[in-house]
Amino acid sequence: MLENLIVFILASIIGSEVISKVPAMLHTPLMSGSNAISGITIVGALIVAGMVGDVWAMWIGFAAVIVATINVVGGFLVTDRMLQMFKKKD
């Protein structure tokens, strides 16, 4: 538990340092991109749902896998679509 908390705090500090330097111009892609990262829950869903024989755990986890994947795949794709539009003057 304490180990988890240490990891959480350190990651929060790194995140704050890195993200506070993102320019306002890229705030929307930052949101949708970081949102896709929060879809990491898919890993949790796979672990919980895939490792037990329990039917309930399996189906709830199955639903979690679907929604988390929507979040991950949709989030990264739409961020990519946005970012490819940002061009310098040629």
Partner: peptide
């Protein structure tokens, strides 16, 4: 991540939370 004791979730969640 805390529930599952899984660092991948904790790190990513913290990054997004901070953002």
């Amino acid at each position: 991540g805390f529930v599952l004791n899984n660092n991948a979730l904790i790190i990513s969640g913290a990054l997004v939370g901070a953002s």
